[in-house]
């Protein structure tokens, strides 16, 4: 049977729950965070550390301002990326045993990562400083009914392609983007592929043949099954 990770996980290991562990505040990051709080004030909803990197969730109204502060006041002149997250788990229409059983089983409730969240979609970005060598992850919640976020193109020129990608992959509209058009996908493509409810059709039509590869030799079938967490390997 596919295991439910939430059930087997005895010790909670959520972000920020281990003092001095993986997600402990890093002194340089903390100073960066203080500087950001001093300038954005109410614009910040929540902040946390994820593996040493400060993660800050800001209000939608403060999204553009956050970029300006990061670039001009915190010397974060370098844009790594802008992208989106769909926190809703992918639907499994008829229970865990249906469809593609070889894909890893994810929790079925919607939970949020570092710095929390509200609603299904988030846009997140990472900026860093080429001179001072620090970095910062910024997140903003996207209202599912509206799907609009201010564009960063006026601040970081490189936001152009990242936002075009995020728009076609998640359906988030960036207000103020000069030309929001498709980047990767053909013009007639329908849907937003990186949303969790967009099925990976290849897997739906034909289950992943990976299990066949590790099917053991006659007599060894039990061990191979255990090693790959296969649900049931038919003896062939």
């Amino acid at each position: 049977m596919p295991e439910d990770p939430t059930a087997t996980d005895a010790t909670p290991t959520g972000p920020g729950e281990r003092a001095g562990g993986r997600d402990a505040p890093d002194p340089r990051g903390a100073a960066l965070l203080d500087a950001l709080v001093a300038r954005l004030g109410d614009g910040i909803i929540e902040s946390a550390f994820a593996c040493g990197t400060p993660v800050v969730r800001v209000r939608r109204e403060a999204w553009r301002r956050a970029a300006e502060v990061a670039k001009h006041d915190l010397a974060c002149d370098y844009l790594s990326f802008i992208s989106g997250i769909d926190w809703q788990p992918a639907p499994r229409p008829a229970g865990d045993d249906s469809g593609d059983t070889s894909a890893p089983v994810q929790p079925t409730e919607m939970t949020f990562g570092a710095a929390g969240g509200a609603g299904r979609f988030q846009v997140f970005a990472h900026v860093s400083s080429t001179a001072r060598h620090h970095g910062l992850t910024l997140k903003v919640d996207v209202d599912e009914d509206e799907m609009r976020v201010p564009s960063w193109v006026p601040v970081y020129a490189g936001a152009d392609w990242h936002e075009r990608e995020c728009w076609e992959m998640f359906g988030v509209v960036f207000d103020g983007h000069p030309s929001l058009r498709r980047l990767y996908l053909p013009a007639e493509f329908e849907g937003h592929p990186l949303r969790k409810d967009f099925p990976l059709l290849a897997r739906e039509v034909k289950p992943w043949p990976g299990l066949v590869d590790v099917e053991g030799m006659p007599g060894e079938a039990t061990e191979a099954t255990e090693a790959t967490e296969a649900t049931e390997v038919s003896p062939g």
Binding site: P5, D9, T13, G14, P15, R22, D23, A50, C51, T53, V55, S80, T111, G113, A114, H126, S128, G135, T137
Partner: peptide
């Protein structure tokens, strides 16, 4: 199994 969390590496 990778514990819950997120991580940025470059």
């Amino acid at each position: 199994k990778v514990p819950e969390g997120e991580c940025w590496v470059e």
